[in-house]
Design a protein around this nucleic acid. Structure first.
Lengths: 211, 211
DNA sequence: CTACTTTGCGTACAAAGTACGTAAATAAAA
DNA sequence: TTTTATTTACGTACTTTGTACGCAAAGTAG
């Protein structure tokens, strides 16, 4: 049977990142409760569906985005977090390039739009809390896990990664020390290829190591 | 209404620790599925019950243990993790002194017993996976969070904490360096009291800082 | 008082992290 | 072709953190 589990939901905190601007992807709800309000793209899990799959499916259905590397962050289960009935929600998150995706409001979403994280007001349910939790999770894990995987191409020069770290953590990191660190921590591995068509000296390409 | 949510469960991984021996608390199930098999003490969440409360209640109902500091570790949600129907489970864990508690098999538990972690065979469901996850979570967090809170009295001398770290991580840690580390990392704070009745020089008492 | 034990501070060395100099490799300008 | 500008990539010195270990202080037992 492929019914929906009424007490288990998924929420996705998808952060869009470009030009040092951090955005969050919200949808305009097409049903009660909180009809017409902007909120995190989420929904219910099917009876026969694994959590990771549900997260991916919901994101695609609501926003048109697919093929992301999503990470599970935490569970939110307070009795009063959802007004209509008891629902516990598992939070997933990802960091992407907003310009890379064409947003398509699907079923149960009237609109989809990127919002600046800074300017976010009170969202429905515990979604503000979720955004905070996801963000601090990301900042914690950026040196340990391939959190930037959706922001980088398959192969990239280290400077591209360096720029991303600096922008996301909004701090300057010494280029030479940055290289030493990501290499010694085995976050990346060097390929036998170099950039071509660059303006100056070609750079070695690297690849994120998934651990 | 105080019904049970049929698709959300809690499991508790309670580790007992004494004399360098690591044990895990299991109950003998009194119902299907997996009737009569030893498994983690867990069960279903009430409609009006927060997750943390449910964890505490279930532990008390099944084993008689109460008043523990339990930490949420992760969610387990594979579609096939429970045979009868779809159930996702939130895992909590704690580290306690086994001799401190009198075990009382309550409702839905035929027996309660400590088992050596080393000798654990295949358990029902994904409980082996849960134990592994909880253990590595504990070893990760021991330097950051007051994971030993249930093993230590309210006030304790640093050497007691030192012994616990050594035993739990099974490695020797230099006493003098250990002190420096836990103090500089603000895991503990010194009180204006000293041990009395000790065999040698009195030691300052410390308290774990919850963060 | 002496011998012994535990506490707790201090110091020297090692490893990891940070600041920064500079040569190598290329494109563009002269 | 030579020079200049730019980016890559390696190396070195310093600073902070972590580890090994010495030893005096404060108590108990005899």
């Amino acid at each position: 049977m492929n019914e929906i589990l009424p007490n288990i939901s998924i929420d996705n905190a998808i952060f869009g990142f470009a030009n040092g601007e951090l955005k969050i992807l919200l949808i305009k709800r097409d049903k009660q409760p909180e009809l017409d309000r902007w909120s995190l793209p989420g929904g219910y899990v099917y009876y026969n569906e694994n959590m990771d799959d549900a997260s991916r499916r919901l994101l695609h259905e609501l926003t048109g985005i697919s093929n992301l590397f999503l990470s599970r962050v935490d569970v939110f289960g307070d009795t009063d977090r959802y007004p209509d009935r008891r629902v516990i929600s598992v939070l997933y998150c990802a960091l992407v390039k907003p310009e890379q995706f064409e947003l398509l409001a699907g079923a149960h979403a009237k609109k989809v739009k990127w919002f600046e994280v800074k300017g976010i007001k009170k969202l429905p349910f515990d979604h503000n809390n979720m955004i905070d939790t996801a963000l601090s999770w990301l900042r914690d894990e950026i040196w340990r896990k391939p959190v930037l995987i959706n922001l980088l191409p398959e192969k990239f020069p280290l400077n591209q990664m360096h720029d991303l770290f600096q922008a996301f953590l909004h701090e300057t990191i010494d280029n030479r020390n940055f290289r030493k660190k990501v290499i010694s921590q085995e976050l990346v591995e060097r390929l036998n290829e170099k950039t071509t068509g660059g303006k100056q000296r070609p750079a070695y390409l690297y690849r994120l190591k998934r651990k």
